[in-house]
Amino acid sequence: MDEAKWYVVHTYSGYENKVKVNIEKTVENRNLQDQILEVLVPLETVVEVKDGSKKTAQKKMLPGYVLIKMVMNDDSWYVVRNTRGVTGFVGPGSKPVPLTPSEIKSLGINLPTGELKPAVQFDGKVGDKVMILSGAWEDTIGEITSINEGKQVLTINVEMFGRETPVEIDFTDVKLM
Protein backbone atom coordinates (compact mmCIF):
# COMPACT_ATOMS: atom_id res chain seq x y z
CA MET A 1 0.00 0.00 0.00
CA ASP A 2 3.06 2.29 0.14
CA GLU A 3 2.57 3.06 -3.56
CA ALA A 4 -0.91 4.57 -3.04
CA LYS A 5 -0.88 8.34 -3.45
CA TRP A 6 -3.47 11.10 -3.73
CA TYR A 7 -4.24 12.34 -7.26
CA VAL A 8 -6.52 15.14 -8.43
CA VAL A 9 -9.01 14.40 -11.20
CA HIS A 10 -10.76 17.15 -13.15
CA THR A 11 -14.48 16.61 -13.80
CA TYR A 12 -17.29 18.45 -15.50
CA SER A 13 -18.69 21.00 -13.07
CA GLY A 14 -21.55 19.50 -11.09
CA TYR A 15 -20.50 15.90 -11.89
CA GLU A 16 -18.21 15.43 -8.86
CA ASN A 17 -20.59 13.17 -6.90
CA LYS A 18 -21.57 11.16 -10.01
CA VAL A 19 -17.90 10.60 -10.83
CA LYS A 20 -17.27 9.45 -7.24
CA VAL A 21 -20.17 6.96 -7.36
CA ASN A 22 -19.23 5.68 -10.84
CA ILE A 23 -15.58 5.11 -9.89
CA GLU A 24 -16.61 3.33 -6.66
CA LYS A 25 -19.00 1.05 -8.62
CA THR A 26 -16.32 0.23 -11.19
CA VAL A 27 -13.79 -0.51 -8.44
CA GLU A 28 -16.29 -2.90 -6.84
CA ASN A 29 -17.26 -4.56 -10.15
CA ARG A 30 -13.67 -5.04 -11.30
CA ASN A 31 -12.36 -5.93 -7.85
CA LEU A 32 -9.81 -3.08 -7.80
CA GLN A 33 -10.11 -2.22 -4.09
CA ASP A 34 -6.36 -2.80 -3.67
CA GLN A 35 -5.55 -0.26 -6.42
CA ILE A 36 -8.15 2.49 -5.97
CA LEU A 37 -8.47 2.93 -2.23
CA GLU A 38 -10.50 6.09 -1.75
CA VAL A 39 -12.51 8.58 -3.80
CA LEU A 40 -13.19 11.92 -2.14
CA VAL A 41 -15.29 14.92 -3.16
CA PRO A 42 -13.71 17.58 -0.95
CA LEU A 43 -16.45 19.18 1.14
CA GLU A 44 -15.95 21.75 3.82
CA THR A 45 -18.25 22.51 6.68
CA VAL A 46 -18.90 26.24 6.65
CA VAL A 47 -20.34 27.90 9.72
CA GLU A 48 -22.05 31.16 8.80
CA VAL A 49 -22.55 33.65 11.62
CA LYS A 50 -25.46 35.97 10.82
CA ASP A 51 -27.41 38.06 13.29
CA GLY A 52 -25.75 36.20 16.16
CA SER A 53 -26.95 32.75 15.06
CA LYS A 54 -24.74 30.01 13.64
CA LYS A 55 -25.77 28.04 10.57
CA THR A 56 -23.78 25.07 9.31
CA ALA A 57 -23.62 24.12 5.63
CA GLN A 58 -21.60 21.73 3.45
CA LYS A 59 -19.95 23.29 0.40
CA LYS A 60 -17.68 21.81 -2.25
CA MET A 61 -14.16 22.88 -1.46
CA LEU A 62 -12.88 22.33 -5.02
CA PRO A 63 -15.77 22.48 -7.49
CA GLY A 64 -14.93 20.47 -10.61
CA TYR A 65 -12.35 18.25 -8.88
CA VAL A 66 -12.28 14.85 -7.16
CA LEU A 67 -9.40 13.48 -5.07
CA ILE A 68 -8.46 9.83 -5.52
CA LYS A 69 -6.09 7.78 -3.39
CA MET A 70 -4.79 5.10 -5.71
CA VAL A 71 -1.88 3.00 -6.86
CA MET A 72 -1.03 4.40 -10.29
CA ASN A 73 -0.83 1.68 -12.94
CA ASP A 74 -2.38 1.07 -16.36
CA ASP A 75 -5.55 -0.54 -14.96
CA SER A 76 -6.31 2.12 -12.36
CA TRP A 77 -5.42 4.96 -14.76
CA TYR A 78 -7.72 3.48 -17.42
CA VAL A 79 -10.66 3.07 -15.01
CA VAL A 80 -10.46 6.65 -13.74
CA ARG A 81 -9.67 8.27 -17.09
CA ASN A 82 -12.58 6.53 -18.83
CA THR A 83 -15.19 7.27 -16.17
CA ARG A 84 -18.08 9.36 -17.51
CA GLY A 85 -17.66 13.00 -16.43
CA VAL A 86 -13.87 12.83 -15.97
CA THR A 87 -11.91 15.19 -18.21
CA GLY A 88 -8.48 14.05 -17.02
CA PHE A 89 -5.88 13.98 -14.28
CA VAL A 90 -4.31 17.20 -13.05
CA GLY A 91 -0.66 17.38 -14.07
CA PRO A 92 1.57 18.37 -16.97
CA GLY A 93 0.92 16.49 -20.19
CA SER A 94 -0.62 13.05 -19.92
CA LYS A 95 1.29 11.92 -16.81
CA PRO A 96 -0.67 12.32 -13.54
CA VAL A 97 1.32 13.90 -10.71
CA PRO A 98 0.49 12.88 -7.12
CA LEU A 99 -0.10 15.50 -4.46
CA THR A 100 2.80 16.08 -2.07
CA PRO A 101 2.19 15.78 1.69
CA SER A 102 2.52 19.58 2.01
CA GLU A 103 -0.11 20.12 -0.72
CA ILE A 104 -2.46 17.71 1.04
CA LYS A 105 -1.85 19.51 4.34
CA SER A 106 -2.51 22.92 2.73
CA LEU A 107 -5.88 21.60 1.49
CA GLY A 108 -6.69 20.72 5.08
CA ILE A 109 -7.13 17.01 4.45
CA ASN A 110 -6.64 14.78 7.46
CA LEU A 111 -4.84 11.87 5.76
CA PRO A 112 -6.08 8.91 7.80
CA THR A 113 -9.72 9.97 7.58
CA GLY A 114 -9.92 12.18 4.49
CA GLU A 115 -11.88 14.75 6.50
CA LEU A 116 -11.52 18.43 5.81
CA LYS A 117 -11.15 21.10 8.45
CA PRO A 118 -14.27 23.19 9.05
CA ALA A 119 -14.30 26.85 8.02
CA VAL A 120 -16.33 29.70 9.46
CA GLN A 121 -17.64 32.61 7.42
CA PHE A 122 -18.00 35.88 9.33
CA ASP A 123 -20.19 38.61 7.85
CA GLY A 124 -18.79 41.51 9.90
CA LYS A 125 -16.22 44.12 8.84
CA VAL A 126 -13.55 46.31 10.43
CA GLY A 127 -15.23 49.02 12.51
CA ASP A 128 -18.29 46.90 13.44
CA LYS A 129 -19.19 46.46 17.10
CA VAL A 130 -19.38 42.90 18.48
CA MET A 131 -20.32 41.27 21.77
CA ILE A 132 -18.13 38.43 23.05
CA LEU A 133 -20.28 35.36 23.79
CA SER A 134 -17.91 33.19 25.87
CA GLY A 135 -14.62 33.07 27.76
CA ALA A 136 -12.96 35.61 30.03
CA TRP A 137 -14.37 38.51 27.99
CA GLU A 138 -17.99 37.23 27.94
CA ASP A 139 -20.60 40.02 27.47
CA THR A 140 -17.85 42.56 26.65
CA ILE A 141 -18.50 44.82 23.67
CA GLY A 142 -15.64 45.85 21.41
CA GLU A 143 -14.85 47.23 17.96
CA ILE A 144 -13.30 45.04 15.23
CA THR A 145 -9.84 46.33 14.26
CA SER A 146 -8.82 43.41 11.99
CA ILE A 147 -10.16 40.14 10.58
CA ASN A 148 -7.88 37.14 9.95
CA GLU A 149 -9.78 34.68 7.69
CA GLY A 150 -6.91 32.17 7.73
CA LYS A 151 -6.79 31.86 11.52
CA GLN A 152 -10.58 32.42 11.79
CA VAL A 153 -10.08 35.16 14.41
CA LEU A 154 -10.97 38.82 14.92
CA THR A 155 -8.89 41.39 16.72
CA ILE A 156 -11.12 43.70 18.70
CA ASN A 157 -10.43 46.58 21.05
CA VAL A 158 -11.91 46.18 24.53
CA GLU A 159 -11.66 48.61 27.42
CA MET A 160 -9.47 47.36 30.26
CA PHE A 161 -8.18 49.48 33.15
CA GLY A 162 -9.45 52.63 31.45
CA ARG A 163 -7.69 52.08 28.11
CA GLU A 164 -8.29 50.25 24.81
CA THR A 165 -6.60 46.83 24.60
CA PRO A 166 -6.52 44.57 21.50
CA VAL A 167 -7.86 41.03 22.02
CA GLU A 168 -8.00 38.07 19.56
CA ILE A 169 -11.34 36.22 19.54
CA ASP A 170 -12.59 33.28 17.38
CA PHE A 171 -15.31 34.02 14.80
CA THR A 172 -17.68 31.67 16.64
CA ASP A 173 -17.27 33.48 19.98
CA VAL A 174 -18.74 36.83 18.92
CA LYS A 175 -22.09 38.28 17.87
CA LEU A 176 -22.49 41.41 15.73
CA MET A 177 -24.25 44.27 17.49
Rank of each mutant, 00 (worst) to 15 (best):
residue 98 P to D: 06
residue 84 R to S: 13
residue 73 N to T: 10
residue 97 V to A: 01
residue 87 T to D: 06
residue 73 N to G: 12
residue 80 V to A: 01
residue 100 T to Q: 10
residue 85 G to K: 02
residue 84 R to C: 11
residue 82 N to I: 04
residue 75 D to K: 15
residue 76 S to M: 12
residue 93 G to S: 04
residue 81 R to C: 10
residue 92 P to H: 14
residue 88 G to Q: 02
residue 101 P to A: 00
residue 93 G to W: 02
residue 81 R to D: 11
residue 96 P to W: 01
residue 88 G to H: 03
residue 99 L to E: 05
residue 82 N to W: 00
residue 86 V to Q: 04
residue 93 G to D: 03
residue 74 D to R: 14
residue 71 V to A: 11
residue 77 W to P: 02
residue 99 L to N: 10
residue 92 P to Y: 14
residue 100 T to E: 08
residue 103 E to Y: 01
residue 78 Y to D: 07
residue 79 V to N: 04
residue 87 T to I: 09
residue 87 T to Q: 09
residue 74 D to G: 12
residue 82 N to T: 04
residue 95 K to W: 12
residue 83 T to L: 02
residue 81 R to K: 15
residue 77 W to R: 15
residue 82 N to A: 04
residue 79 V to Y: 03
residue 104 I to T: 08
residue 84 R to T: 14
residue 72 M to V: 10
residue 89 F to W: 03
residue 95 K to V: 15
residue 102 S to M: 05
residue 85 G to F: 07
residue 101 P to Y: 02
residue 85 G to Q: 06
residue 87 T to G: 06
residue 97 V to G: 07
residue 99 L to M: 14
residue 92 P to A: 15
residue 94 S to W: 11
residue 98 P to E: 00
residue 93 G to P: 04
residue 86 V to P: 04
residue 95 K to L: 14
residue 71 V to S: 08
residue 87 T to N: 07
residue 71 V to W: 04
residue 85 G to R: 00
residue 104 I to A: 02
residue 87 T to E: 10
residue 75 D to S: 15
residue 71 V to D: 03
residue 104 I to Q: 06
residue 93 G to Y: 01
residue 81 R to I: 10
residue 94 S to L: 14
residue 89 F to G: 01
residue 80 V to C: 08
residue 97 V to N: 02
residue 94 S to C: 11
residue 104 I to S: 06
residue 95 K to T: 15
residue 90 V to W: 01
residue 94 S to F: 12
residue 77 W to T: 12
